[in-house]
Amino acid sequence: MSKKMSLLYLCTGNSCRSQMAEGWTRALKGDQIEVYSAGIETHGLNPNAVNVMAEAGVDISNQKSQHIDEFKDTKIDYVITVCAHAHETCPFFPGDAKVLHVGFDDPPKLSPADASEEVKLDGFRRVRDEIKAFVETLPGSLEQ
């Protein structure tokens, strides 16, 4: 049996995009990929991200917002930055970690602050589905 590839999704606050990516990867590719997520900062788990993932049948409610420093001693094969800020400030990873950028829109910024809850959730749903489509290409798309 071959060893699982290890992958870390990195975002600014580890509250939405990286959390959804971790959840999708665990649900769809958990037999092939050991997955983690972290942030340059920690902002806590966004409840709307939890809700839209649950709508799709993926429970991320037990995941937690983690700081990148928590992974300094973890062997990581791939680091995928999912937001521009994380990509621009991505720390150095020892070893052979390949850093790739696959950007997704920030769900909370997709609707005005005074938008209805349903309109806000629509932004989260769109990003959730875009992340799922990306995860479905793994691990092959990383090895190009």
Rank of each mutant, 00 (worst) to 15 (best):
N62M: 02
N62V: 00
N62D: 11
N62Q: 14
Q63S: 07
Q63A: 10
K64I: 07
K64G: 01
K64S: 10
S65H: 06
S65F: 09
I68E: 03
I68D: 02
I68A: 00
E70R: 14
F71W: 03
F71N: 03
K72P: 00
K72I: 12
K72A: 15
K72H: 14
K72F: 09
K72C: 09
D73G: 08
D73H: 14
D73P: 03
D73K: 13
T74E: 06
I76W: 00
I76H: 07
Y78L: 05
Y78H: 10
Y78P: 00
V79G: 02
V79R: 13
V79C: 10
I80D: 02
I80A: 01
T81L: 09
T81E: 15
T81Q: 10
V82N: 00
C83Q: 09
C83T: 12
C83S: 10
C83M: 04
H85N: 15
A86F: 02
A86N: 03
A86M: 04
H87F: 06
E88G: 09
E88A: 10
T89I: 00
T89N: 14
C90Q: 11
P91Q: 13
P91K: 09
P91L: 12
P91Y: 06
F92H: 10
F92G: 02
F92D: 08
F92L: 12
F92Y: 15
F93Y: 05
F93R: 05
F93S: 01
F93P: 01
P94W: 12
G95F: 07
G95Y: 03
D96K: 11
D96H: 12
A97S: 15
A97P: 03
K98P: 03
V99E: 11
L100D: 07
L100R: 13
L100H: 12
H101C: 09
H101L: 08
V102K: 05
V102A: 11
V102T: 12
V102N: 07
G103D: 01
D105N: 05
D105Q: 11
D105L: 04
D105P: 14
D106C: 04
D106F: 00
D106Y: 03
P107T: 13
P107R: 10
P108T: 04
K109T: 09
K109L: 12
L110N: 02
L110K: 01
S111I: 03
S111Y: 01
S111D: 08
S111W: 02
S111L: 01
S111A: 15
P112D: 14
P112R: 15
P112K: 14
A113Y: 07
A113S: 13
A113H: 10
D114L: 00
D114T: 05
A115Y: 04
A115T: 04
S116C: 13
S116I: 00
S116K: 04
E117C: 03
E117Y: 09
E118N: 14
E118A: 15
E118P: 07
V119S: 06
V119A: 12
V119Q: 05
V119L: 06
K120C: 02
K120P: 05
L121T: 09
L121Q: 14
